[in-house]
Simulated scan of single mutants.
Amino acid sequence: MHRKKKQEKGTEAFPSSIFEIDKSGSVVNETYIQAVAQFMKELLEGDEDCFLVEVKIKPTNNFKVFLDADSGISIARCINFNRALYKKIEEAGWFPEGDFSLEVSSPGLDEPLKLWRQYKKNIGRMVDITLLDGSHLTGKLLEVTEDGCVVEETKGKNKKKEVITHSLLFEHIKQTKIQVVF
């Protein structure tokens, strides 16, 4: 059971149904992440194309929200979501002094794929997969099933060229990153 901390004049308590308080009396970052994710899901309602990938927070109250879309996500769309989400965070009153920042963007090529939907939209692209055992596999993403993916790896060149098809379960994949081919 949480004991109520004496409130300083001019401050408001956080709704206990949304936030958890740690022993020092500060809000746990995970609850901010969950609340921001919920706000974002509300903003995405009715948008069949766009989806939330991840919410991160840095100790400086810098929120990073990664969105993606089946048809790709534009900068303009990210700006619109940023403005709407910023307003929701301000209205929630979590940071009365306004000491937070918000970035809404696509995950970018440096972020690994996290969701099945991301795998699906990247069929036909080159991927670099790290398996749980530490081994790497680079190839073309051919297919995505409910529990895994099929990747076509090409080894060697010309007459020594060998094409190997790998069926991988998601549970054996540590991370998958899109490769840019020039």
Rank of each mutant, 00 (worst) to 15 (best):
F100M: 08
L113T: 02
E8G: 10
E20M: 11
V144P: 04
A84C: 01
K9D: 14
G93Y: 00
R77W: 00
L43R: 01
T154V: 15
E54S: 12
T165F: 01
H136R: 15
V150E: 15
E153G: 02
W116E: 14
T176V: 13
S16Y: 06
K6M: 08
K6W: 08
L137W: 02
S105P: 03
V163C: 03
L141N: 01
V163Q: 09
D49I: 05
D70A: 11
V181S: 14
F81H: 09
V180L: 15
G25S: 07
T165C: 09
G93T: 02
E143T: 10
A35V: 02
R125N: 15
G10Y: 06
F81S: 06
V144R: 00
T138L: 12
G139A: 11
W116K: 14
K140T: 11
N158Q: 09
N122K: 03
D133C: 12
G25H: 03
G134M: 10
G25I: 10
V36A: 05
A69W: 00
Q7I: 12
V53Y: 04
I164Q: 12
M1K: 04
D49Q: 12
K174N: 15
E143F: 11
Q7H: 01
E171G: 03
P107H: 05
T11A: 10
S71W: 00
E20N: 15
